[in-house]
Amino acid sequence: MDIAFELACEALRCNEVPVGCAFVYNGEVIASGRNEVNATRDATQHAEMVTIRRLEQWCRNNQKELDKILVECDLFVTVEPCIMCTAAV
């Protein structure tokens, strides 16, 4: 949660909605991200969406299957996910 909070502070400094989140697998942070709506000029780039895509990259780099990893992951996020991100998760 501290990592997520640091990311939220970073988002606030960059004039973003201050949301940060991290995926934890076996006690290790394997993906993290913050809100990037204004930076990318894409309203769908919420923290959770950004982090899920990075999680998918991590799975590809480590030759793991996403569905096996995802059921073992914990998501830490500073703000309750919105409807879009909840559906994505």
């Binding site: 769908t44 409807i83 559906a87």
Partner: peptide
């Protein structure tokens, strides 16, 4: 659309 896509459309107004 599903919930994720429907809400994405809402975010994009």
């Amino acid at each position: 659309p599903c919930l994720m896509c429907g809400m994405a459309l809402l975010h994009n107004r």
